[in-house]
């Protein structure tokens, strides 16, 4: 049951990365994407109906972690105190810029929110990667199951590299999404951006994967190679895609494969200890089996239902552009 709970949690986070990933990516690239107000407005319009629903995956994942593994939630959120609060502030700035930009015609007003949106989105993508990097690397637990993640500790080479990878990969994902959602010459601009980004993503990916494999050699089951190889194939499909559907599918599979690699490196830990020690895993951070089972069932039903009605609603809305 605890393993199933881990998989569900990883899947919810992956869904978050996949979905909010494109609107974060749109934000990160949107100043590069177009210099005109029309183009930038089109970028906002492309994500406006979806961003809130996407962000619910973050809230739901956080809450699911809380219910399934309360001790890991408590340790991680208090340990990464300041970085998380900064994430919150960035999320607020981003939400404000998406919702408020359209309310006034003024050029100054829009220009302000354009830049705020871009900076907040890019930083968020980077910080999410940074957090992921530090999760895989481990955190310095004290004796009582808590730790203090100061910036001096968190800003290490490995985590910074994962942060860069996240920023680039989400930017590419966002560009591919724009490619699908906008028209005419804007479409061409999105396509060029996607083309421009993939080699950078490839470099970052190979670097990070090499560093990860050196630190956590892939031993045991050869099936563990599937995720990194799938990521490479997916990236190649973005590189050679003529059709937007293939590019978007490629970047989606790429992100999923990244999350899968991270999850399999982490398993069965939720928060490994650095440099060594026991840390928190899916057994010692979990309450009784009834509690885990209840949270698992509730989350599974809720998320599946949401995926079904969410997809139906999104398809109905997209049918008429």
């Amino acid at each position: 049951m605890n393993v199933a709970a881990f998989v569900l949690l990883a899947a919810m986070l992956a869904a978050y990365v996949l979905l909010d990933g494109y609107d974060l990516g749109v934000g990160a690239v949107h100043l590069l994407f177009s210099r005109t107000d029309r183009g930038r407005a089109a970028a906002f319009a492309a994500i406006h109906p979806f961003w809130n629903g996407n962000e619910v995956f973050l809230i739901a994942s956080g809450a699911a972690l809380f219910a399934l593994f309360p001790k890991a939630y408590a340790a991680a959120f208090s340990g990464f105190y300041l970085p998380l609060i900064i994430v919150l502030w960035l999320l607020m700035v981003r939400g404000m810029s998406i919702e408020l930009r359209g309310h006034f015609e003024s050029e100054l007003w829009r220009g302000f929110w354009d830049v705020a949106f871009c900076i907040a989105s890019a930083l968020l993508a980077f910080v999410l990667g940074l957090a992921m990097g530090n999760l895989v690397r481990g955190v310095p637990f004290n004796g009582s199951g808590y730790f203090q993640g100061t910036f001096a500790f968190l800003l290490n080479g490995y985590a910074l590299a994962v942060g860069a990878l996240a920023l680039l990969a989400l930017s590419m994902h966002g560009a591919a999404f724009l490619w699908m959602r906008v028209d005419d010459e804007l479409r061409e601009s999105a396509r060029r951006l996607t083309r421009f980004l993939w080699p950078l993503v490839a470099v970052a990916f190979i670097g990070v994967t090499a560093a990860t494999v050196i630190a956590h050699p892939i031993t045991g089951h050869p099936g563990l190679w599937i995720a990194p190889i799938a990521a490479l194939v997916a990236l190649a499909s973005v590189a050679f895609a003529k059709k937007v559907a293939l590019a978007l599918a490629g970047s989606s599979v790429f992100l999923l494969a990244l999350m899968a690699s991270a999850a399999q490196t982490l398993f069965p830990h939720l928060l490994p200890a650095f440099p060594s020690g026991t840390g928190l895993d899916i057994y010692n951070a979990a309450p009784n089996a009834y509690s885990v089972g209840t949270a698992f069932t509730a989350a599974l039903i809720g998320v599946s239902a949401a995926l079904i009605y969410g997809t139906i609603a999104a398809l109905r809305m997209m049918r008429a552009k």
């Binding site: 956080g62 809450a63 939630y73 340790a75 991680a76 959120f77 199951g145 509690s291 509730a298 039903i301």
Partner: peptide
């Protein structure tokens, strides 16, 4: 939602098995 973990970790670690349930249900 974040504050329970960031500022009230003692509460979350001790009572999360219950309060986490309802908060997760609210989310999903």
């Amino acid at each position: 939602e974040f504050q329970f973990g960031t500022n009230w970790a003692g509460f979350s670690a001790r009572a999360g098995s219950v309060v986490g349930q309802t908060l997760a249900m609210e989310g999903v």
